[in-house]
Design a protein around this nucleic acid. Structure first.
Lengths: 193, 193
DNA sequence: TTGTACATGTAATCAGTTACATGATTCT
DNA sequence: AGAATCATGTAACTGATTACATGTACAA
């Protein structure tokens, strides 16, 4: 077995291609023109990553030969790729991920659609909420250590973190509410049927 | 002249050592035990970075020989180091920095104390505010493109970004208010004197 | 005396950045 | 005709991660 874990970029590529098959150039354009994550659109990052994923057979390539033009390499997920993506999406958010790979929890949420059930998404959000709430408490406890007046600069910076994660909490709450509503309406649907 | 730019970690080390001279181990402990940035506390990152900075003569080392123990290498800023740090702090926040190195604007703010004047800090915050406000507008314009009902997942993710940067705006406003107050009271002080 | 904290480092690996290369196609 | 965009890649560099190495001081 090769190396186990994938980089965030590699997972992002899996997620995107999992939504619909794409070429490297499509991804390049997406990273360049939309606020999708904070990924670099440089070909030196994207193409080697795609090749790595293909070499590990998480991606399949098919050639688009509609024109005699330079062939476009269209990537799609293999079975293994689907599994790796789903496994990633199912991992609960951890404190470490929240701090070190701060965009990842949302990235994963973004790809969860149609890959995870509403129940699974709700429990993902619940875990996410717990981790954020715990981290806010951590930050608040540091706040106490910065009582001295000459530390007001540092307290402002810490306040920034607290505000940031509080707004994250608010988002999680509102997303959770939206999904609970969705679950209700999908159940109603079943009954009506 | 050697390579121009420094990594965020290297600037963070300059900033910390600029507050007070430190050993590598002090920094390791700081990264490990406080919510200071999101830096890795691994010695494999810290010590080589300190050595690079010393080689470029941005840092000076002096040996602590109080005990016959293994000598502690205490780093302090050189004149060049002070200048490099100040130049970094004076750079206005850019859209690119906001997105790609999202912790950096606050990190720089954190080190501005006693290195930048209140006026400079206020104009830094004003530039920061403008960039964040512009980016929120950008995100809002993407929001319009996600009207379709099957895009609600993506809209939620985008909403996350909007909330995050709005809370950042709020923080900037409150920090600005705090500094305007500080400026007023420091002027009063001068008058009283 | 066994282990934990102090203290600094190196070696292997690997992904990301920057810059360059190539050639076709479409727009102006 | 020339520029911009499509489309995919490679090569050099370099910083970060992980893991290991080494030895002291001090506390249980």
């Amino acid at each position: 077995m090769t190396k186990e874990h994938l980089t965030t970029l590699e997972y992002a590529l899996l997620g995107l291609i999992g939504i619909s098959p794409m070429t490297g150039y499509d991804i390049h354009k997406l990273f360049e023109t939309t606020p999708f994550g904070h990924f670099s659109s440089s070909p030196g990052a994207i193409y080697p990553a795609l090749n790595r994923l293909a070499r590990r057979s998480l991606l399949d390539t098919s050639m688009d030969k509609r024109k005699e033009a330079r062939p476009r390499r269209i990537y799609s997920l293999t079975k293994t790729g689907e599994e790796a993506l789903a496994a990633w999406l199912r991992q609960p958010v951890t404190r470490d991920e929240l701090i070190r790979i701060s965009g990842a929890p949302i990235l994963r949420f973004n790809f969860a659609k149609e890959r995870l059930s509403i129940e699974e998404i709700l429990s993902y959000l619940e875990g996410y909420r717990r981790v954020v709430a715990a981290y806010i408490d951590e930050l608040l406890s540091y706040d106490d250590q910065l009582k001295a007046p000459e530390m007001y600069h540092n307290r402002l910076a810490l306040d920034h973190g607290i505000r940031r994660y509080r707004s994250e909490l608010e988002w999680i709450t509102s997303a959770t509410t939206a999904f609970i509503r969705a679950r209700r309406s999908s159940r109603k649907h079943k009954v009506v049927r």
